[in-house]
């Protein structure tokens, strides 16, 4: 089974393999540069456990676990 962004621990990095899920959200993530091969690092989890903060292409992005589940990583 392929790993998704949700399974990456804070402080750890991975590479994006594909982005799926709802078309609008997927499109938004791809516009922001989450495409095949992009390095991505999970920075932290929000105090209430959701959303998570990631570092990608030199900026910080927050997304919910529900969205992170559709980001498949290598």
């Amino acid at each position: 089974m392929s790993r998704t962004l949700v399974s990456i621990q804070p402080g750890e990095s991975a590479r994006v393999a594909s982005v799926g899920g709802e078309a609008g959200a997927a499109r938004r993530l791809m516009d922001l540069g989450l495409i095949r091969g992009t390095p991505i690092r999970v920075v932290r989890v929000a105090p209430l456990g959701d959303p998570i903060e990631v570092s990608v292409r030199g900026f910080m992005l927050s997304l919910r676990r529900a969205e992170a589940e559709h980001v498949v990583v290598d």
Binding site: R28, P51, L61, S62, L63
Partner: peptide, 12 residues
């Protein structure tokens, strides 16, 4: 409506 994504930049 479909649950809305919360994809948001945390700017410097």
């Amino acid at each position: 409506g479909p649950s809305q994504p919360m994809i948001m930049e945390l700017p410097p």
